[in-house]
Simulated scan of single mutants.
Amino acid sequence: MINVVIADDQTLVRAGFRSILDGEEDISVVAEAADGAEAVERAASERPDVVLMDIRMPGVDGLEATRRIAADPRLGDVRVVILTTFDLDEYVYSALRAGASGFLVKDTEPMELIHAVRVAARGDSLLAPAVTRRLIAEFVDRIKEPPPAPRLNSLTEREREVLAGVAAGLSNEELAERLVVSIATAKTHVSRVLTKLGARDRAQLVVIAYESGTVRPGWLS
């Protein structure tokens, strides 16, 4: 069973999402939150697999709540998926940097919402849609020269290829095909890159790849 917490200051939004998700046999909404502080509390008490987090909420907003959840070692298995009204939202990029695993536009189709929850719950990131990469490129493009990234020095040449592949939104299967290795080997490479870079998940690897200049906006069209 995939346990979900829904954090949004609009009661109708929470009710709509709960109705969709609770209709699935493998998903259960275990709690709701009307602001960021409550979302952090519910994440700590319920230890859900996924938190659907609105950005704009009163008091503690979704960005700060995401940062607090990602920083708590007890909640290392909790995945945060950002809910936003606009697909290009500067706060979404900040949330990805803070540890969110991806984002959804609020008017997404019900099946896309269900799929996103399942993807996040199994530890993957919502990186396949081109809009996610476009969003990251939009804001990282403002960085004229990438800052020094000494932590990338620990990566082997193959691991740098893996990082670039993840930034391109490739799945483990697609990485395996590109690198001509087994899927198990591709998974091992991704795990090593995550560990070496101290990244929470693949979403943060995408951010690191852009900010370090490993890939640049326009390379992944």
Rank of each mutant, 00 (worst) to 15 (best):
S19Q: 15
I20D: 10
L21N: 12
L21E: 12
D22R: 10
G23V: 07
E24R: 14
E25R: 15
E25A: 15
E25D: 15
E25V: 13
D26S: 10
D26K: 12
D26A: 12
V29K: 13
E32I: 03
A34P: 06
D35V: 03
E38K: 13
V40L: 12
R42I: 00
A44L: 11
S45G: 03
E46D: 13
V50H: 06
V50A: 06
V50M: 02
V51K: 11
L52C: 08
L52W: 07
L52N: 11
M53L: 08
M53C: 08
I55K: 04
R56W: 00
P58W: 00
P58A: 02
P58L: 02
G62F: 03
G62C: 03
G62L: 04
L63G: 05
L63S: 07
A65G: 08
T66E: 08
I69M: 10
I69F: 05
A70D: 00
D72L: 10
D72R: 14
P73T: 11
P73K: 12
L75T: 13
G76F: 01
D77G: 04
D77N: 08
L83A: 06
L83G: 10
T84F: 04
T85G: 13
T85H: 02
L88Y: 13
D89A: 01
D89N: 15
E90L: 00
Y91H: 15
Y91G: 12
V92F: 11
V92M: 03
S94D: 15
A95F: 04
L96P: 09
R97N: 07
S101N: 08
G102A: 05
G102H: 07
G102P: 08
F103A: 03
F103E: 02
F103M: 03
L104V: 07
D107P: 03
T108V: 15
E109Y: 12
L113C: 04
H115Y: 08
H115T: 13
A116S: 15
A116N: 12
V117Q: 11
R118M: 02
R118Q: 05
V119K: 11
R122P: 01
R122D: 02
G123V: 05
G123K: 06
D124H: 10
A128S: 04
A128H: 10
A128E: 09
P129W: 00
V131L: 04
V131Y: 04
R134H: 05
L135C: 02
L135V: 01
L135D: 00
I136L: 02
A137E: 15
A137S: 15
V140F: 03
I143F: 05
I143N: 02
I143E: 12
K144H: 07
E145M: 01
P146N: 05
P147E: 05
A149D: 01
R151V: 06
R151P: 03
L152M: 09
L152A: 10
S154W: 00
S154Y: 00
L155A: 13
T156E: 07
E159K: 11
E159H: 09
R160E: 07
R160V: 09
V162D: 06
V162N: 08
L163E: 04
A164N: 07
A164E: 12
G165K: 07
A167L: 00
A167C: 07
